[in-house]
Design a protein around this nucleic acid. Sequence first.
DNA 1: GTCTATAGTTAGATAGAC
DNA 2: GTCTATCTAACTATAGAC
Lengths: 208, 208
Amino acid sequence: MTKANMSEGNIRQKNKAIIFSAAKKEFVTYGFKGASIKRIAERAGIARANIHYYFKDKTDLYQQLLSNIIEVWNTDYDTLSADQAPKEAISTYIRAKVMHSKNDPDSSRIFASELIHGAPILHDYLNTDFKTWLQSQVAIIESWVEKGQMDKVNPHHLLFLIWSSTQHYADFNAQVVAALDKEAMSDDDFEEVVASLTQIIIKGCGIK
Amino acid sequence: MTKANMSEGNIRQKNKAIIFSAAKKEFVTYGFKGASIKRIAERAGIARANIHYYFKDKTDLYQQLLSNIIEVWNTDYDTLSADQAPKEAISTYIRAKVMHSKNDPDSSRIFASELIHGAPILHDYLNTDFKTWLQSQVAIIESWVEKGQMDKVNPHHLLFLIWSSTQHYADFNAQVVAALDKEAMSDDDFEEVVASLTQIIIKGCGIK
DNA sequence: GTCTATAGTTAGATAGAC
DNA sequence: GTCTATCTAACTATAGAC
């Protein structure tokens, strides 16, 4: 790759990142169909036609955005540790999930919206990579049960419980802040969430 | 009200019900902005213009649909029983919520989609009727804690945990069926959900 | 790589005959 | 209460100059 190519590549990368960031807000606010390329361009501070220069069409942009989100999850934090005892592993996992709901709620919301509307784009992913990854998580829980480190619980439903209860604070934030009678959740509020969920789930699984 | 008026009223009621049913599917599939009145009319088997005869505009139709959904919840099942001990009350509540996710997933999904996208229509409801109703639920849990019938848990976060984990099977059904490697969840699957969630949450709250 | 102009499509909403 | 026809607005996508 020549120097000219590299700097072109950098412009591409930088502009695509700006577009992704703008698209994320737009998709969260209006959903896939409701999102308009005009408003994404305005949010990004670039001309409308440039979006079409970088992305084939709206579906292509949305697909790549979803891929980015999933990639961050898979490489970053969304994994139970097989090397730890269940108490530490699950506590760490709950905290990581709650903090992700705090720090990047829009990613969670876009993923949730995609699933709620039937996962038209993520259907293939759910039946391939997701299933493989899930199987590794289930195996970890099963090993804890076999070793008597926790009660016999259905691994799938335990995982769903952790996912839903932690992502709730991103996806349903509008309802949560109304319920807590606040403008927005504070750092302390999120710590209280971690403590509450950890307390109930650890004890509920019979983990000492 | 004359007989003629009554039968007119009945036609209105019947047609509005048909439109609501069609609109529900359309809003679930495409979201608020993506839903088209043309397709709602096609699903309902009536002419496009008739939708505008019964509803002022798309927002009006969506608002009334949301009101219907919330009304069913409030009058039907979505309440902790203050007269029971926590074990029975929470077990009953979890079962009712899971069965509602099974029997009417689209209502749950429309509500979830509205919240995820910032609750533009439900904002007022969340800050009035919802808060009042929630306070009654919180008070019930607090009374159980005071009487020593359960551990000291944060009532709000316990309620969020129950709502999110039970509604998950409606809202995130696409992911759940992929995870369970099924076409659709069976009656037995839903019983397993009730059993798993009840087991973990009851024990997790220190309820005997 | 960026911009303006525009083609082509789809939508919401209304008027007016029946 | 229902239907056809139509107006108006918004949006995606592309062509072509710079």
